[in-house]
Amino acid sequence: MRRALTLVVSGMVAALLGILALGGLSAAATATDKEAANEAKSVSEAAKRAGKKDPYAPVVYGDR
């Protein structure tokens, strides 16, 4: 009984990790050039709203 329970629990955890990994991988795989550019744009706009320097402006190496 204990063995079966251990197998079921560890199987469920492994399956969860598998789903997370596959879900994340498919999200990463379907990220297009346009989406990457949109993400950069939204980061730029958020920085402007917060009164910070735009991390994608040419003079900024990065933001902490």
Binding site: S10, A14, L17, A21, G24, L25, A27, A28, E35, A36
Partner: peptide, 24 residues
């Protein structure tokens, strides 16, 4: 099963390294 789970752990925790950092 545990070893498979541990093998998947790094990918599950940081899937956005895949595909060139999710398109970066």
């Amino acid at each position: 099963v545990v070893l498979v789970g541990l093998l998947l752990l790094p990918v599950a925790v940081m899937p956005d390294l895949a595909f060139g950092g999710a398109g970066r």
